[in-house]
Amino acid sequence: MRKILIIGATSAIAQETAKLFAEKHDALFLVGRDVDKLEAITADLKVRGAHQVAYYTLDLNEFDQHEPMLEQAYKSLEGLDTVLIAYGTLDDQKACEQDFAQAEQALRTNFMSVVSLLTPIANRLEKQHYGCIAVISSVAGDRGRQSNYVYAAAKGGLSLFLQGLRSRLHSANVCVLTIKPGFVDTPMTTNFKKGALWAQPETVARGIFRAIKWRRNVIYLPWFWRFIMMVIRLIPEPLFKRMKL
């Protein structure tokens, strides 16, 4: 039985991943903002077989609340071995270009708040010498494009942070998994036109579940995004800057 902390537990991908953990009778501690949603998910996971489920409401932009939350998670689960960080906002790029306050908010939520969470989490897992930290970043962070570079900067920064952290925690037997989903059909992307590249959250969740089990480093979900991003990264900058991507 794993003891799993899920931060951003009401996101579509987190919900689907939590179901897979519940079917394996793991113990779960869910963190999110909305009580109604957390209650609905908690009941569902219990019926699906979770050993225990508790939830904790928190606005993740309140950084000083991160430590007490973690404290509570340890107490409730009587330990901790797996952390899944699965929240983010997809802010309006145009608004971020015009107004720094918007850009700052995007960076705070998608990058700074995750760093604030990872700092105490990493220190605790390093000390106990076991565990796994899985964080949802994005394929967007692989290259800055004009259509969403503020979001890309946050996710790209996050990917780099995780890369360094992975290296640091390797000797402490703690794995750090960077999850890079492509287009996923979730409430975050309701207003997008869906095409062949779009994946369902269930599919992405299965990939995350397997990657945690196999203690992988970086995964693209679905797998073909690894090759799409490889091509995108290979485009020379003089050409790339002229492309309307």
Binding site: A12, A40, A43, D44, V47
Partner: peptide, 9 residues
Amino acid sequence: RKLNRFIQF
């Protein structure tokens, strides 16, 4: 389809 949670069994 997203209303796909169990409540009690």
